[in-house]
């Protein structure tokens, strides 16, 4: 364990004056981001259940509504946009709790916080993986469930698009809540309480987009607002996530 140490210390541990050599931050950050994305993707794909569970939950909740309300296609068609959006939102929420919990439990989160890279950027990579493996599959799966709720054919692409755009905002906003509750032993229910009120604008414009597509009004305005919400979340949420993680690591 000893040889090589002396040399490497000399190499690396020059005093703080060596910023110039340690600089090239953009490439360093790029490497760190790519590796974090890759690591989280590999981990999630190794535990496939974690990826599949929200999808199954989504399908199951959609199955409950016709049973609980009525199998009448006309009624279902009328409430389908809202049902699909609410169910997808809950499914995305379900998987949020585990976003940082694994890293918190095994100590990786401490290391993430101590990496010489901006924490906001690194947490953004983690959120991106969450969206890729939760929001995006939910958006792709939604048309299938739309068929079961007699959603008119013309609205499927808008349904998927609105869910894809909206769920990215949901992942970003939800990650703040997940980061705030990751240090708590039973954070799951609290997480929903914190996050669901913040989800309401996304829900309104997401379900509104599908509704508008069904009525033939054109969903462009809704999608534009969803895009604006996403842009705002992208700009602001990473700072919130980073601040929240710093708090949670303190216990």
């Amino acid at each position: 364990m000893t040889e090589g140490m002396t040399e490497s210390v000399k190499q690396q541990s020059a005093p703080a004056g060596d910023e110039s050599r340690n600089a090239a931050p953009s490439s360093g950050l790029g490497i760190a981001l790519a590796a974090t994305l890759r690591r989280d993707l590999v981990l999630m794909l190794r535990y496939r259940g974690e990826v599949l569970n929200p999808l199954v939950f989504f399908a199951l909740v959609i199955t409950l509504f016709p049973i609980g309300i009525s199998p009448d296609p006309e009624l279902l068609q009328r409430i389908a946009p809202g049902l699909l959006w609410v169910a997808a939102l809950l499914a995305a929420l379900l998987s949020l709790d585990s976003l940082f919990r694994g890293d918190f439990d095994d100590g990786s989160l401490e290391q993430l916080l101590l990496a010489p890279q901006p924490l906001a950027a690194l947490s953004l990579a983690k959120v991106a993986v969450h969206w890729l493996l939760t929001g995006l599959p939910l958006a792709l799966m939604a048309p299938l469930l739309g068929v079961m709720l007699s959603l008119p054919p013309g609205s499927y692409s808008i349904l998927s698009l609105s869910l894809a755009l909206g769920s990215a905002s949901l992942s970003l906003i939800g990650a703040i809540g997940a980061a705030l509750t990751v240090g708590l032993a039973r954070g799951g229910v609290l997480l929903s309480l914190l996050v669901l009120p913040l989800y309401i604008p996304v829900l309104i414009f997401g379900a509104g987009a599908v509704q508008a597509a069904i009525m033939g009004d054109g969903a462009g305005a809704h999608l534009a607002i969803l895009g604006a919400l996403l842009a705002a979340s992208l700009a602001l949420a990473p700072w919130g996530i980073a601040a929240a993680l710093r708090i949670s690591i303190n216990g």
Binding site: A24, P25, S27, G28, L29, I31, A32, A34, A35, T36, R39, V42, L43, R46, Y47, G102, D105, D106, G107, S108, E110, Q111, L112, L114, A115, P116, Q117
Partner: peptide, 28 residues
């Protein structure tokens, strides 16, 4: 810094764990 918890992912091999740590410090 090495804390109480080793910061090792059970789902990754030792080599993969180190890949992340190496990249996290911004090194090739």
């Amino acid at each position: 810094y090495l804390g109480h918890a080793p910061g090792v992912k059970a789902g990754l091999s030792p080599l993969e764990n180190l890949v992340w740590y190496q990249a996290l410090s911004g090194e090739r």
